[in-house]
Design a protein around this nucleic acid. Structure first.
Lengths: 230, 230
DNA sequence: CGTCCATTTGAGGTGGATCAACCCTAGTGG
DNA sequence: CCACTAGGGTTGATCCACCTCAAATGGACG
């Protein structure tokens, strides 16, 4: 129900587009490095990129589209840990396995490099090693803030927080086009999709935001949202 | 109410006991390194070790006692991110500030090293750099599992999870002596202290655990707890 | 022995979940 | 170009797991 992947991505060899790393914004400042070959890859909407506990062979960067990483309980309950948008790196592990699964939310292109080559580079270049550390530390910072949200914030505070986060990350010209559905938002915020929908409707009624389509949102009063977010 | 620290720890110079790092289990394999000086320090119950957003000048390792790291909302709601027990490292940041506050839960001794000296060591030694990364990655793994707990698990599942975690980390001879109060447990699990108490009472009634004092717990049926934890 | 907290237990309230229609819109095919 | 359909989104009604408020109990310590 939650995952509708149709084929193991590793089998879609025909979609692999190898190439050198571009010198502009190259995997967050990791490229120009001996032995770092980036490959491009495309996933369709809802396609699995990797599964939980799968060997972590690659590190990914979103080029176009959006990705959700999540954990599942045996009865289907899902917690989305993060949404990854163009420019974001995901799938970076210091251990041997991925600890969350990853799926494309919409049609998505990623750049990927072999984790092994990244670790080799880190073994000879302390700058690469430092970059790996700070990327993981940034993920930890996000997780720590999200624990506070999940453990202690009300539904409205969570939704306000989500809107401000997405506004910051993907608004163009004051408008954001959300790639994810209400269920994804709920599974990110520890709520049901109905509760998310009700909170958004209330914010619309209060004039804090405006819709032009369920996933096209414009924030009209960011300060009110910041006050809600505490 | 939540913090009853009586003095800034940096002022308690009289309690500083400088010394070289012992060669056995030395700061999780980081010592024996040029320029890494470890200092010992003691905090009383409920004393603040560092505050949220305070400059991250030191990295700490618990020698004896227990530490909670947490975030606060402006109205006093608290989310404890982790409990740190003897051997655990905490306060390691790649950025300039601590993103959670830290307090001693009971009288606690820590070993501390200057974060700057650790980063210098990492700048010349890739093994140190790698160790910093894996320590942060371990914290991230814990945070990811805790997000699933906070976002999607029931009260009983959370308490079962907590008991198994503490059993693993601090049980001696099948018995655990919890250093923290019910409020701390609640703020760790995103519950109230009453809900924690009721769950523990129910587990006691069902024979899954036994008390010998409110904080002295023996698990009698770990498998039942594992099933509850999903 | 009395005081002070921490903990337990009880009673009742509520925020968000659940269950159930209904609606809207994009995509499809005639 | 429009009718039909399916999936996502909204809204309403009801329920219940956990919270809140309150009081009793227990244990540690002077």
């Amino acid at each position: 129900m939650l995952t509708q992947s149709t084929a193991a991505p590793s089998l879609n060899i025909n979609r692999v587009v190898p190439g050198p790393l571009p010198s502009s914004e190259p995997f967050c400042g990791l490229a120009g490095h001996a032995g770092l070959i980036a490959t491009e890859f495309t996933y369709r909407k809802d396609e699995e990129i990797y599964g939980e506990d799968e060997p972590a062979e690659y590190v990914y960067q979103v080029i176009r589209g959006a990705v959700r990483t999540y954990k599942l309980l045996s009865d289907g309950r899902r917690q989305i840990g993060a949404f990854h948008l163009p420019g974001d790196v995901f799938g970076l592990e210091s251990g041997i396995k991925h600890r969350l699964a990853a799926e494309a939310i919409i049609d998505t292109s990623v750049r990927l490099v072999k984790r092994r080559s990244l670790e080799q580079a880190a073994g000879t270049d302390v700058q690469v090693a430092h970059k790996l550390w700070t990327m993981t530390a940034d993920d930890l910072k996000h997780a720590e803030e999200h624990m506070l949200l999940l453990g202690r914030k009300s539904a409205m505070e969570r939704v306000a927080n989500f809107l401000l986060e997405m506004d910051r990350r993907l608004a163009v010209a004051g408008m954001m086009a959300l790639p994810m559905c209400r269920r994804d938002i709920g599974d990110y915020l520890g709520l049901t999709l109905e509760t998310v929908s009700r909170a958004l409707s209330q914010l619309n009624d209060e004039g804090v935001l405006g819709f032009s389509g369920a996933r096209q949102i414009v924030l009209r009063n960011r300060q009110r949202l910041r006050n809600m977010d505490i």
